[in-house]
Design a protein around this nucleic acid. Structure first.
Length: 496
RNA sequence: GGUCCUGUGGCCGAGUGGCUAGGCAGAGCUCUGCAAAAGCUCGUACAGCGGUUCGAAUCCGCUCGGGACCUCCA
């Protein structure tokens, strides 16, 4: 079945055809590691993790490149004052790479919690200064950039005379000239729409590299162009990132790469929408961020409790990636229960056995289930509609639970449907959606202890000593462990 | 101010010109020593006003509300 992707460039869904058959190249804008990632950052990484996984499922050999932006003005808040006093000892000074390391580690930790697969290549901006300088030189040579006082700018108006600057973001270059915003170094630019390729480092600036134009640091947009070209080629299939990067970041990337490579760099531009909080985008400048570690620990005034990374992942997948997703405790708690229900049914399904096909097939049921299963891939092919896939899964949950309770016999499905149900669930839940059990213990000692209590309770129940049996259940419940008497007489438990 | 997106039942959220989204919460029933879980049943929602159409929540226009980008931003 063919995959369709919504292309921000054309503003419609297009059939996905990779430039090289059987292979797919994808670049996703990664984090700036000057601070801890927050909930908003989780969205693109989870979204494109699923895109990555799905492309592999569709049989593509994928190279997934996601950068780390570690070049810029790196200073931890509050440290500047200290630096002024301690100027002598290297150990007492702010070391930008120390911050880079700290927040890169935190970021990797969070990605791990989310079960996001590591990208094929994770290049850093500081590791590609040479490539960026080479690209800037090429832009100067081509006449689309100019140097002023040790800084280099891209000449947007010249570019737009020959190319369409604004084709991605729908912007009109002339309009950009009238922007009223005050930008640093604005007076050096020929036009307000121009953007920096290389910035001369002020005396205070900690990160600096030698360049043909003096000591400085690369502009914001050039790193992605340089690294994407290096690892994916002059043209590649998918470029992803948040919608807020559409302009100017991605628009400028197109301009730079188009001049250097003589070809537009990206075939399919994909943009995920924002996570909002009380209707407002989550972002540093809005002062409404919840960092990922706060989210996982519940340590934030806006959080009623801690949320498991899988609950976050699940709720992000319950929303289509191009819609905004409004954060609320209610939404996450609903997701928490939903995920548990889905996961329980999934586990149940995997544990269910059945006899061979004995001609007991219930055709209506078999067909119904087949349609729901076929929907998984069909919906994913329709611009990665994870929300619809999950809806289908939930529709299958009652059938699975009924099979467990024997109100529906697994034998009422054909062998083929039965196998399909088991494998599709496994592939889509675990391999494509990357979901995992939402909070399970594997502590065997705890399991042993629980088994003792369950046995004691069983004895009490057999003697109709419900005071004792209920006490065991209630006190375990208060401790966050729920006992369930199953219909077949066994007892199961789940840890909250 | 410019460009663009959006407004769905108590909450979160899919979606298509005519056919039940789904989750959570709520109500009733079944099962159960009681619970929990599970199963069954129940809500007839699509900002407002016009228009196109045999038919629109889905297309068009206007009004109102929300948001994003235009500056670092996932």
């Amino acid at each position: 079945m063919p995959l369709k992707i919504y292309n921000s460039l054309s503003r419609r869904k297009e059939l996905f055809e990779s430039l090289i058959p059987g292979m797919a190249g994808m670049y996703v804008c990664g984090p700036t590691v000057s601070g801890e990632s927050h909930l908003g950052h989780a969205r693109p990484y989870i979204t494109f993790d699923v895109v990555y996984r799905y492309l592999m499922y569709k049989g593509f050999k994928v190279r997934y490149v996601r950068n780390i932006t570690d070049a810029g003005h790196f200073e931890e808040e509050g440290r500047e004052a200290i630096d002024k006093i301690n100027t002598r000892a290297a150990l007492e000074k702010t070391e930008p790479m120390e911050l880079v390391q700290k927040y890169t580690n935190l970021y990797h930790w969070a990605m791990n919690q989310f079960n996001c697969l590591p990208p094929s290549i994770e290049p850093t901006a500081t590791g590609h200064i040479i490539e960026q300088i080479a690209m800037i030189e090429e832009l100067l040579r081509a006449g689309y950039a100019y140097e002023v006082n040790g800084s280099v700018y891209f000449d947007v108006m010249k570019y737009s005379a020959h190319y369409d600057y604004g084709k991605l973001s729908g912007r009109i270059p002339e309009d950009l000239l009238e922007t009223t915003r005050q930008l640093e170094g604005q007076e050096e630019k020929r036009n307000k729409a121009d953007f920096a390729l290389w910035k001369k480092a002020p005396a205070k600036h900690l990160m600096r590299w030698k360049s043909p134009w003096g000591e400085g640091f690369p502009g914001w947009h050039i790193e992605c162009s340089a690294m994407a070209t290096k690892y994916l080629g002059k043209q590649f299939d998918i470029h992803g990132g948040g919608m807020d990067l559409l302009f100017p970041h991605h628009e400028s990337e197109i301009a730079q790469s188009t001049i250097c490579n003589q070809v537009a760099p990206v075939k399919y531009w994909m943009h995920n929408n924002m996570i909002t909080i009380n209707g407002k985008k989550m972002g540093k400048s809005y002062n409404n961020v919840i960092t990922l570690s706060q989210l996982f620990s519940g340590d934030h005034p806006l959080l009623e409790k801690a949320y498991h990374p899988m609950v976050i992942r699940f709720s992000i997948l319950q929303t289509h990636y191009r819609s905004t997703f409004d954060f609320s405790n209610e939404a996450l708690q609903a997701a928490e229960k939903g995920l548990r229900r889905l996961w329980d049914a999934y586990t149940t399904l995997q544990s269910l056995g059945r006899m061979d096909d004995q001609g007991k097939t219930d055709r209506g049921l078999d067909e119904k289930i087949n349609i729901l299963l076929e929907g998984f891939e069909e919906f994913m092919d329709d611009d990665f509609n994870t929300a619809k896939v999950l809806a289908n899964m939930f529709e299958l949950v009652p059938y699975i639970n009924s099979m467990k309770d024997k109100t529906i016999l697994p034998e009422s499905l054909t062998d083929e449907t039965w196998r399909k149900m088991k494998t599709f669930f496994k592939i889509f839940i675990e391999e494509i959606f990357g979901l995992q059990a939402p909070g399970q213990t594997t502590d065997s000692k705890l399991e042993d202890v629980l088994q003792v209590l369950i046995d004691l309770r069983k004895i009490a129940k057999a003697k109709k000593d419900f005071v004792t049996s209920d006490r065991i259940r209630n006190e375990l419940s208060a401790a966050g462990i729920l006992l369930k008497d199953e219909k077949d007489g066994s007892v199961s438990y789940s840890i909250q």
